[in-house]
Simulated assay, not measured.
Amino acid sequence: MEETVATTVRALLARADLHLRLALDETELEPGALDAPVRWVHNSDLADPTPFLSDALALMTTGSQFAGVDDPAVYDAYVRRLRERGVCALGFGTHVVAEGIPPLLVDACRVQRMPLFEVPYRTPFIAVARAHADAIAAQAYARRSWALAAQRAIALAALRPDGLAATLAELARQLDAWVGLFDAAGMLTREHPAGALDADTAATLADEVAVVLRRGARAGSAVRTGATPFTLQTLGRGGHLRGVIAIAAGELDQEGRGLVTSVIAMAGLALEQNEGLARARALPVGHGAVAAVGRSDPGPSRGARHVGRPPGLRRCSWR
């Protein structure tokens, strides 16, 4: 997939116009804590704002709830509640209630490994929330643009001589993931890129596909073989499964799912048409239209008259 605008804690801290400063060393945080996605930015000075918060949220506070508090347990309990609620970062607005970030809050965040950053007085909380909202909007636009370009590339691939193989290869390229096609017997017939799966992963995946085919119902499912997540999508309709498409990817976003749905429809139709053509070619000569298609020179149909020059009309030439 193409890169999109990041909406992570690290991206928020990297905004030079906001002048935010990480109060802890990154080594004191959970691995990848700064790369956690931020769904929204909110502010509250409640001692316990967790009933009004959602997960993957960056919370900002001026610290008025800590005025006159010097008990480390209060700070520890506060940060622990935020951590358990799923808050991904805490911002402290300085020079409003306190000149700097209270050392006890810094210590509590260090113990809980919670990202803590300073929001200077010159940066309004609303500016931080606005910057994040703009990043979310830019990310959504980038994903829509990617989806349109990917759908166009898939449609062009379907027009190539081996449209099915080209479509699967294009899907693998767009998702930057391994894509495989299993037939109705559970055999891997196409994969892109070829040979990307090790033998154990390929064998385990084939077993999972066999289970899906035996179930006989059209459905999508997610499985994991070792450390690799796979998305399985059946092909076919009316209780007649024609195969399974496997994608080495976990949960896809809306645009990714839409692209996969298009490929599923194209692949299912292609396999259905191939089966119909194979059945038509298997019919003996003399079966109506199939016989006519099979003859290289069908000749005139019964009752047809030869149309020549009308009587008395002489051939003429232009000089």
Rank of each mutant, 00 (worst) to 15 (best):
L271F: 06
Q233H: 10
V263I: 06
L175R: 07
V179R: 03
L269C: 07
L171D: 05
V211Y: 09
A219R: 13
V260M: 06
V260Q: 04
A267P: 01
L271Y: 09
A249S: 13
V179G: 01
A270T: 06
L188W: 07
L213C: 12
V212C: 09
V263Y: 08
T225S: 10
T189L: 06
A199G: 08
G243P: 03
Q174G: 06
A199N: 11
L271T: 13
A267H: 05
V244K: 03
R218T: 11
T261I: 01
L241T: 04
G258F: 13
T261N: 11
H240D: 09
E208A: 13
E251H: 14
G243I: 03
A219V: 04
A184V: 05
G238K: 08
I247H: 09
I264N: 08
I264A: 11
L232E: 00
E255T: 13
G195H: 13
A196R: 14
G238V: 05
L269T: 12
L269V: 05
L252S: 08
A246E: 03
F182M: 05
L252T: 02
G239S: 02
F182Y: 14
G239D: 00
F230T: 00
V260I: 08
L171F: 03
G220A: 10
L171K: 00
R215K: 09
T228R: 07
A210C: 12
L259P: 10
E255K: 07
L232Y: 09
R218P: 06
V244T: 05
Q273P: 00
E191D: 14
P193Y: 11
M187D: 13
L271H: 07
L235S: 02
V212G: 03
A270N: 10
S221H: 10
L175E: 10
A267D: 00
S262E: 13
I264V: 15
G238D: 06
L232P: 04
R190P: 03
A270C: 04
A194I: 12
A249K: 12
G258K: 09
A202R: 14
A270R: 04
E208Y: 05
G216W: 14
R218G: 14
I245S: 00
A249V: 15
H240L: 10
E272G: 11
L181I: 09
R224S: 01
R237Y: 07
P229Q: 06
F182L: 04
A217R: 15
Q273F: 08
D198R: 02
V179N: 00
A199R: 15
Q174L: 08
T231L: 05
A219K: 13
Q254A: 15
T204V: 12
G216D: 07
A206T: 14
A185N: 02
T189V: 15
S221P: 01
E272R: 12
L175T: 01
A248I: 01
A196M: 11
D207Q: 14
V223P: 01
A249C: 07
A202T: 09
G238I: 10
A172Q: 15
A184E: 15
Q254M: 07
A219I: 01
L181F: 08
